[in-house]
Design a protein around this nucleic acid. Structure first.
Lengths: 221, 221
DNA sequence: TGCCTAAGTGTTCAGAAAACACTAAGCTTT
DNA sequence: AAAGCTTAGTGTTTTCTGAACACTTAGGCA
């Protein structure tokens, strides 16, 4: 048991894990096995260990739930309404993560009871204030698409410009002009053309590109 | 005394209070009277009460230190490196506030021991990781100037376009073209011209404008 | 060989941002 | 009363950026 002179809140991290699957932007949710909100869907997350850095905690949760590491993770917002958890005062530092779609087979490797991907546009009822958290993450992600290279984080090491364009279209939910999109992306000088091409159907093969600074999210504009 | 099954961190809020004084962007700092970092300058802040909303805590600290209320306050980032406070694990949710320069007489009304304004470009050694917090706040403020009307929050209810331009110039540390600046500001339709003018020296008086939505920060661009 | 499909490529137009200099209004000085 | 000082206030031109738009290319398949 641990005692303090003044009452202390508990601190958790919750992570909004985004990926693009089946041409949809999806979020990873887990089914809660314990009260409160037993049986309810919730964001993966958990308590910050007393000697653990907050971001390290988010990374750990991400690893435990999805098996992935080395992916984009950014602090989002800290939610702490006094009554957001009926058990005790809980303040949650939220993060969002972007996982490339070719990594998510690892989902099966998760120890999680029932971890499932949900369409962002078709979410179930959520525990706590997690609907608010996801809404905030979505807003941030959409904003960040406009002025950074976050979108690369959804794709494997090498990808085609059409794949990249699809990422933008799916997240922003609007079609984009192919020529303008390509010109813009290449003008930043953050993509290197490779000599490789991929055949992906009965049509002309597409050239693969790779980020100049893989793993880093650069500012554009 | 309060006991828990698992160890809990303490949670604080710290507030970066910005104002514009003497043609400089300044930050409010208080001199610490207690360990750790006794005698060191630090951001105003303190522990979150167990039933208190986090933002309410920041507002309270702001009120206690500066006497001001009803000003712009926004959550910035949550810092929680395990060793950032030598006493115990402390996670701090930081905010930044913008205070109009004509409100800051209230500074005297503060109960704070030694609360003083410092030029952002000439800060003393700071307690904890508060240098990092201020750096983060500055970055956010500069970014936000570009795509919102935050700058209005530094000024009284009514102000001249020249005053507004000075706010931009001081924060961004660059001179701006007067005609382009005015055209841009007025084009957003977020400023209403009043019939009032202010004489402020031996020259032509300037027209006063007031925000269409005082208190609200609108997005531009 | 012809057809199907997605990859790849330029130009034009419109709106936004940047550069740039003089007149207006009130005060002060003589 | 006139001249001079100081900041307020105002348009036009040019440059750049973003938006609109259609056809050719490369390979697979029948």
């Amino acid at each position: 048991m641990y005692t303090y002179e003044h009452p202390h809140p508990a601190v958790t991290t919750d992570v909004v894990v985004f990926t693009i699957r089946d041409e949809r932007l999806q979020v990873l949710l887990v089914k809660r096995r314990n009260p409160p909100f037993t049986g309810c869907w919730a964001l993966p997350g958990g308590f910050v260990n007393i000697d653990e850095d907050i971001e390290a905690c988010a990374l750990r949760e991400l690893q435990e739930e999805t098996g992935v590491s080395g992916v984009f993770l950014e602090q989002l917002y800290t939610f702490g309404a006094p009554d957001r958890d009926p058990r005790e005062r809980v303040i949650t530092v939220t993060y969002y993560a972007l996982v490339p779609h070719d990594h998510i087979r690892i989902e099966a490797a998760s120890d999680a009871s029932a971890a499932t991907w949900f369409d962002c546009t078709d979410l179930p009822a959520l525990a706590f204030d997690h609907d608010q958290v996801i809404a905030t993450a979505l807003k941030r992600l959409r904003a960040k698409l406009q002025y950074s290279t976050v979108a690369f984080q959804f794709l494997p090491d090498k990808f085609t410009l059409s794949e990249l364009q699809r990422v933008y279209e799916i997240i922003l939910d609007q079609t984009l002009d192919k020529r303008n999109f390509r010109r813009r992306m290449l003008s930043y000088g953050l993509l290197a053309a490779t000599e490789e091409k991929v055949r992906n159907g009965n049509h002309r093969p597409a050239r693969l590109y790779r980020p100049q600074t893989p793993g880093r999210v650069e500012f554009i504009k």
